[in-house]
């Protein structure tokens, strides 16, 4: 069920062998909306407590600046979408013992990864949006951090919440790998006692294939999940897509259900492509 996932146990050893017991922490931003960093900034007094437990050496939005510092734990928000970001993420990897990617952009490329399989190239889009396209320096794709460097832990969600981030830091401070439950949203939804919006209302809910962790917010509000936490472990996307056909969705609408916030994940990418025209 819930997976214990030591993606890279050697990185944990590295972290546990740090010279100073008080870890140095950095929060780096790449192509993103800044919303996942708010998991720290919105934590209120927990942020102050955190600043007493660790040295926050780089966190531009909150103030501390030392982008080149060697750190024990680096949190990375955002996807890699410019040539400069490609270089920067390699630099961040070199100077960090343990690297955590946070949020949909960093773990899957995020919403902006929709450009990856657009029939138009990013260049055409640049020409459509910007009057002076020559000034815009952008890669053809927006891709997750793990496509560029080794990532030691991924926290999924658009956005990640304080519980995810602080639970991970606490576990790492204790020297163990954080436990990440990768089960389906349906499990969380049932625990909350929500009425199933797929069964009871015929809404095209993505819950059966979506990573839990948000608190099953959308079904609790009577609406269908739109998979902002990405794919769960072993998602049966094919069966769910067939169910959506039964609900009367057109192929393009089914493709759009998978090609949304986390379109670049292998599971959602292929499921969407099956239905895209």
């Amino acid at each position: 069920m819930s997976a214990w996932s030591p993606e890279h146990p050697d990185a944990l050893d590295q972290l546990n062998q740090r010279p100073q017991p008080r870890p140095k922490v950095a929060v780096h931003k790449f192509s993103s909306c800044d919303g996942c960093q708010l998991a720290f900034i919105n934590a209120g007094e927990a942020l102050i407590t955190l600043s007493q437990l660790v040295d926050i050496v780089h966190f531009a939005e909150a103030g501390p600046l030392d982008a080149e510092a060697e750190v024990d734990i680096a949190f990375v928000e955002g996807s890699i979408s410019t040539p400069h970001e490609k270089e920067r993420i390699e630099q961040v990897r070199r100077q960090s013992r343990f690297l955590v990617s946070i949020g949909a952009c960093a773990t899957s490329g995020g919403l902006q990864a929709l450009r990856n399989f657009n029939s138009h190239s990013a260049e055409q889009w640049t020409q459509a949006v910007y009057a002076q396209p020559a000034y815009i320096d952008s890669l053809e794709t927006a891709t997750p951090v793990a496509e560029h460097v080794k990532v030691d832990l991924e926290l999924w969600g658009c956005p990640v919440n304080a519980r995810q981030v602080f639970a991970a830091i606490r576990a790492l401070l204790f020297g163990v790998m954080p436990l990440i439950d990768k089960d389906k949203l349906c499990v969380e939804c049932k625990r909350r006692g929500n009425v199933c919006v797929l069964v009871a209302k015929g809404e095209p809910c993505m819950g059966p294939v979506t990573h839990l962790g948000c608190g099953a917010l959308c079904p609790a509000f009577g609406r269908d999940c739109y998979a902002c936490f990405g794919p769960a472990e072993n998602p049966n996307t094919h069966a769910l897509a067939r169910r959506f056909v039964g609900l009367g969705l057109l192929p393009e609408e089914i493709a759009h259900r998978f090609h949304f916030i986390n379109s670049h994940t292998p599971a959602f990418r292929s499921a969407g492509l099956e239905w895209a025209e």
Binding site: F30, G35, C228
Partner: peptide
């Protein structure tokens, strides 16, 4: 800030997805 082409992602999407898309322009 790297261009994220939001106005282009919106094209072709249903009106029902617009509010979930535009929220992602800014987390603040």
């Amino acid at each position: 800030e790297p261009p994220r082409y939001f106005e282009k992602f919106l094209e072709g999407r249903s009106y029902q997805a617009v509010l979930d898309i535009v929220a992602r322009i800014c987390g603040i």
